[in-house]
């Protein structure tokens, strides 16, 4: 068995799929009572075949998996409830047989991990949008220009404005864009239809 497993592992080294043909539950193991049998199947799916690579005893055709399947059924017939059956096996083989790790000090981090990650990443998003809110409240977009450059640019804009017609000139539009926090698209994207107007008019958004 060991040899078969290790050779399988070697060949499995490249593939993204487990490599054990699984034909587990045999007709002679099945209990007559369909309710008990269904419970047995459910319990078996949560118990690890200890000599296998990540297979439950329900999926494995290893001898010990069969023995444990029979043991599960034996306990069920003897009247144990699901919990008792599982603890009977854990008492002999340890927590290692549980495919659903129990909630205990050495698995706190495992079970708490996903919610903690969710909280961390949600915090990041909140920080991200708070920055947005602040900048919006300030009525400004992020300013890529240094104060000095900005002053120069403003002066330039004023000069241009002075030479053009008052009213609906480019100055107003430019100022509005700045206030929106809209940086003009880089030159090579100007040909692309952008944003929602385009969405509505041409049914075109890149997504």
């Amino acid at each position: 068995m060991t040899k078969l497993l290790s050779s399988l592992l070697l060949v499995a080294a490249f593939a993204a799929t487990p490599l054990a043909p699984a034909q587990a539950v045999n007709p002679d193991e099945v209990l007559d009572d369909p309710v008990l049998e269904a419970r047995a199947r459910e319990i078996s799916a949560e118990l690890r075949c200890v000599v296998c690579q990540n297979q439950s005893i329900d999926d494995s055709d290893a001898e010990i998996a069969r023995d444990l399947r029979l043991l599960v059924r034996e306990r069920l017939v003897a009247g144990d409830n699901d919990e008792q059956v599982v603890s009977y096996i854990v008492a002999r083989y340890g927590d290692f047989v549980l495919l659903r790790p129990p909630w205990q000090p050495n698995t706190y981090m495992l079970w708490a991990g996903p919610p903690l990650m969710a909280i961390l990443i949600a915090t990041l998003a909140v920080i991200f949008f708070r920055t947005y809110q602040r900048q919006r409240n300030a009525g400004l977009g992020p300013d890529p220009l240094s104060p000095h450059d900005r002053a120069e640019l403003d002066a330039l804009v004023e000069r241009i404005a002075a030479t053009t017609e008052p009213g609906n000139g480019p100055t107003t539009r430019f100022r509005a864009e700045l206030a929106e926090g809209l940086t003009p698209p880089p030159p090579d994207t100007t040909d692309e239809t952008e944003d929602n107007q385009a969405d509505a008019e041409q049914g075109d958004t890149r997504s």
Binding site: D95, F96, L98, L99, R100, T107, L110
Partner: peptide
């Protein structure tokens, strides 16, 4: 200490 993390964990 050894634990198994199997399909029941991932499904949950």
């Amino acid at each position: 200490a050894k634990v198994s993390v199997g399909p029941p964990f991932f499904n949950a």
